[in-house]
Simulated scan of single mutants.
Amino acid sequence: MPNLTRNELLSKGNALPKFIETELGKEKLCIECQEYWPLDHEFWFTYRNKPNKKGERTIGYEAACKCCYGIRYRPQKQKGTGQIKSYFERGGEF
């Protein structure tokens, strides 16, 4: 793929690549914020993949970065969603 900017990729209707190579090394696209972050344990949660044909397990990285993980996969745990509302906020009438 030629070196195109992010805006050029989006304007042509192409999807952004999942991985890019930069001066920081390999970076991965977050599916929630649509930003690229370095592919390491600081920015991504990891999991162990299923064994391949050789029987080796590799490290897999989640699709959403650590910052967006809760928003994407645990929306019920967001701040403010479980707060007790007053009678008026629940729609009560005087």
Results as ranks from 00 to 15, higher is better:
T22C: 07
E89A: 10
K18M: 12
G91F: 11
K28G: 01
N52V: 12
Y73A: 03
E27N: 11
N49F: 05
W37V: 02
E32K: 08
A15D: 07
K77E: 15
K77R: 12
G60C: 05
G92E: 02
N7H: 12
N7S: 14
W44T: 00
L9V: 15
K77G: 02
L29E: 02
E62C: 12
N49H: 08
P51S: 15
Q78M: 15
F88R: 14
E21Q: 14
T46P: 00
G55C: 09
Y69P: 00
K53R: 14
L9D: 00
N49Y: 04
E89S: 07
T46M: 06
K50L: 13
L39W: 07
L29H: 07
W37P: 00
M1Y: 12
K28M: 09
K18V: 09
L24R: 13
K66H: 10
K28A: 04
K66E: 01
K85H: 08
K85I: 08
I20P: 01
I59Y: 10
L29P: 00
C67Y: 15
E93K: 11
G80A: 04
Y73R: 06
K26V: 15
M1N: 10
A64D: 01
Y36S: 01
R90C: 10
F88L: 11
I84Y: 12
I84E: 07
K77D: 15
K77L: 15
F45Q: 00
K53N: 13
I31F: 08
P2G: 05
K18D: 07
Y61G: 00
F88C: 03
G70R: 02
E56C: 11
R57N: 06
G70Q: 03
E27R: 11
Y69D: 00
K28Y: 05
E21W: 15
G82H: 09
L24W: 09
G80C: 05
K79E: 04
G25K: 09
K66S: 02
R6K: 13
K79W: 10
L24I: 04
C30Q: 02
E93T: 14
Y87D: 01
Q34L: 15
F94M: 10
F43A: 00
E56V: 13
F43R: 01
I84D: 03
F19M: 06
C30L: 07
G70H: 04
I71Y: 09
I59R: 13
P75L: 10
F43I: 00
D40I: 05
R57P: 00
K79Q: 06
G25N: 08
C33E: 03
Y73V: 02
G70C: 04
Q34S: 14
T22P: 03
C30P: 01
C30Y: 03
P38A: 11
C68S: 05
C65Q: 01
D40T: 14
K50C: 11
K77F: 14
Y47T: 04
E27Y: 12
R74H: 15
Q76M: 07
E8L: 09
N7R: 12
E32I: 06
A15I: 04
K50W: 14
W37S: 02
L24T: 06
L24F: 10
T22R: 08
K50M: 06
E35P: 03
T22K: 07
F43P: 00
Q78P: 01
L29K: 05
F45T: 00
Q76E: 14
C33F: 11
G25V: 07
G55L: 09
I59F: 11
I20Y: 06
P75W: 12
I20C: 04
K12W: 06
R48S: 14
